[in-house]
């Protein structure tokens, strides 16, 4: 998928809205906070004169959006670390599982996503940006503030740690990866 026109806010929303909410949800762990972070990201993009625009800015827009979104999500995470969430009954309009329920329940599943929480924050961040959003090492370096070498190292050590967990724990016996490794 090609990069949208940086001046077309509608095209930018169409392209990056959902990936940014998903990424922010992985950082902050709360859907509403993730949505707020993404909304603030786009409003800042609109108002900030230093945001990448013009010809040739398509390559930089994605890294800029993820950088600001990451910072906003971390800010929300710090705010919400002191708040105990209370589920509201009126929000459950149907029997469909809420996004929070999906996120909270993934630890119980024998999936790789549930194992990500056992990694460090930096390893989790790098794996999400690389494997989920297909950012290059340079873009991940811009988003996280780490060096490109450090990005590669964190990605490698994170994957090795996941593999060790899969090999050592019986809950993941049905994963095809374990069968391949053994």
């Amino acid at each position: 998928m090609g990069a949208p026109d940086p001046t077309d806010i509608s095209a930018l929303l169409e392209r990056y809205e959902r990936p940014l909410v998903r990424y922010a949800l992985g950082v902050v762990g709360d859907l509403e906070s993730a949505r707020d972070a993404v909304q603030e990201t786009f409003i800042r993009y609109v108002r900030d004169t230093a945001a990448p625009r013009g010809p040739g800015a398509e390559k930089h827009v994605e890294a800029w959006l993820f950088t600001v979104c990451r910072h906003r999500a971390i800010d929300h995470q710090r705010k919400h670390s002191r708040i105990i969430p209370m589920p509201l009954p009126e929000d459950r309009a149907d029997d469909a599982p809420t996004p929070d329920f999906v996120i909270a329940g993934r630890d119980t599943e024998a999936s790789l996503l549930g194992l990500l929480d056992r990694l460090t924050a930096n390893q989790r961040d790098v794996i999400r940006l690389k494997l989920q959003n297909d950012l290059s090492y340079r873009e991940i370096s811009q988003v996280t503030g780490l060096t490109e070498t450090n990005v590669g190292f964190l990605l490698h050590t994170g994957l090795k740690k996941l593999r060790e967990i899969i090999r050592s724990e019986p809950d993941f016996a049905d994963l095809p990866l374990r069968q391949t490794a053994s």
């Binding site: 959902r18 909410v21 998903r22 949505r35 790789l112 494997l131 990866l177």
Partner: peptide, 21 residues
Amino acid sequence: DLENLAAQLRAELQAEPAFPL
């Protein structure tokens, strides 16, 4: 082995539900 793990993790991460604003 790591490549296979990365491919499987990529598939799961990209299949993760993405919610709109």
